[in-house]
Structure formats: C-alpha cells, structure tokens
C-alpha cells in the first residue's frame, strides 16, 4: 500500500481540509460567544469527517468509511447539538467572560504554538512528498491549540470543548499518518471519547448546580 502523495487530488483535498481544521481551531480560540465556539467545533468535526472520507476513498477501505460516518454523526452532529441543548440552553450560557488573557493575546500565542509545532515535527522525520509531511504538523498544531483553549478559558464547558478539539487534532494525525490503524482499536477510542464526553457533561452540570459560574477560578478549594 503506497502512502498518499501530496500532489494527488486526494492529497490536496486532505491538506486543504486540514488547513480548514486548523483555521476552525483558531476560530474557536478567538470566539467569545459560546454558541459560536461550539458551532466552530462542529464545523471542524465535519471537515475532519470529510478528511477521513478522502482517506477512505483513497485506500478504498470500508473501515475508514465507517469511521468517517461515525465522526460525522458523533462529533459533527451529536456532540455539538448535545452541548447546545444540554449545556448552553439549559444553563443559559451566552458570553464566555472567564478568560485568563485577551482573545488577541491567545490568538498570538496560538500562532506561536503553530510555529512551534512545525519546528518540533521536523519534516526530515517524514518522507518527502507524502501528504503526512504537511498534515502531521498541522494536526500537532491543532492538538496544541486545543490545549491552549483549555488553559486560556476557565469555564468548564469551554475546557470540555478544548479537549474535544485536541482529540480532533489527534484523530487527524491518526488518519493521515497511520491510515491503517487497527479498526477495533479506533472503535475503542471512539467509545472512550463518547464515555468521556458524557461523564464530563454530567460533571459540568453538577458543578454548575453547586457553583455560580462554573469557572475554574471558583475551583480553588483544593490546593497544596
């Protein structure tokens, strides 16, 4: 099985959608309204499932098609809708005011992290002309941006989405770097993801019932 080359049409589509995924991560990082934040995450996941579909088409692999569909259904539709319904509407969340830095600052830090991702993932490690060489640094950047969102935003809902962005980045790296990852393992990863999201949603609603704003600045009881 030959690797996906970056100059083929499939490779180009994959690269483009991963750039879109990176930009969506930036959009998440720079949006102040919760519903936009969640919507950008959904958009990112849709792009991700498109990327998975491209890889699936290229390798003609039924398992990857299944993954693309699951991604679309779960990450692209179910999780954003559930977050909107269960958290944003019910808790009446509008604007995220619990930021530890300004949005512009976090965008700039995000740009620096993107540069860092490119420095760390040295292209020399990856074979030249293979699409993974351009996508893996992008996906690393998405992972870092998700982490940054978790650091900058102190609201628990925002941290949850930040983690999901990170997960998207890892998934993007996975489908391009190692398209042949065993399906049963991927399915397990998905199950864990869903379970984690459910548990986090339960915690978020629990925390909101106990605390006024559910931001981690209130989560200061345990120290030392």
């Amino acid at each position: 099985m030959q690797s996906l080359s970056s100059s083929s049409i499939d490779g180009t589509l994959l690269t483009l959608s991963s750039v879109g995924i990176l930009l969506a991560a930036f959009a998440c990082l720079g949006s102040k309204l919760f519903n936009r934040y969640v919507a950008y995450y959904g958009f990112q996941s849709v792009l991700l499932s498109f990327a998975a579909a491209v890889v699936a088409y290229h390798y003609d692999s039924a398992e990857l098609w299944a993954l693309a569909v699951i991604t679309l259904a779960l990450k692209g539709i179910a999780i954003p809708v559930a977050t909107q319904r269960l958290l944003l509407h019910r808790l009446d969340l509008k604007r995220d005011v619990a930021l530890s830095t300004g949005l512009s600052t976090s965008l700039i830090v995000g740009a620096l992290l993107t540069a860092f991702a490119y420095l760390v993932i040295e292209p020399a490690d990856l074979p030249h002309g293979v699409v993974a060489a351009s996508v893996v640094p992008l996906s690393t950047a998405v992972v870092l941006l998700g982490g940054l969102a978790m650091v900058v935003r102190r609201h628990t809902v925002a941290q949850l989405i930040g983690w999901l962005i990170t997960e998207n980045g890892v998934f993007l790296g996975a489908i391009t770097l190692v398209a042949t990852f065993p399906f049963i393992v991927e399915a397990g990863i998905f199950l864990d993801l869903v379970a984690a999201t459910l548990i986090m949603v339960v915690f978020v609603s629990g925390i909101t019932r106990r605390l006024a704003e559910a931001t981690s600045s209130e989560l200061r009881g345990l120290q030392g």
Binding site: G147, G206, L219
Partner: peptide, 29 residues
C-alpha cells in the same frame, strides 16, 4: 457530589483525559 469532590473530579477527568490523549499520540508514533 459535594463542591470539593466535584472540583477534584473535574480536575482529574480533564487533566488526565488530556494526558491520555498525549499517550494516544505516542501510540500513533
């Protein structure tokens, strides 16, 4: 489900999920 135990659980789940995600990247590599 007291405030401190929810706080601990939130920290636990969010930090270790992120850590485990990094372990997933390790698995990929």
């Amino acid at each position: 489900a007291r405030a401190p135990s929810l706080e601990a659980a939130w920290k636990y789940v969010i930090i270790s999920s992120f850590g485990v995600t990094i372990a997933l990247v390790a698995t990929l590599f």
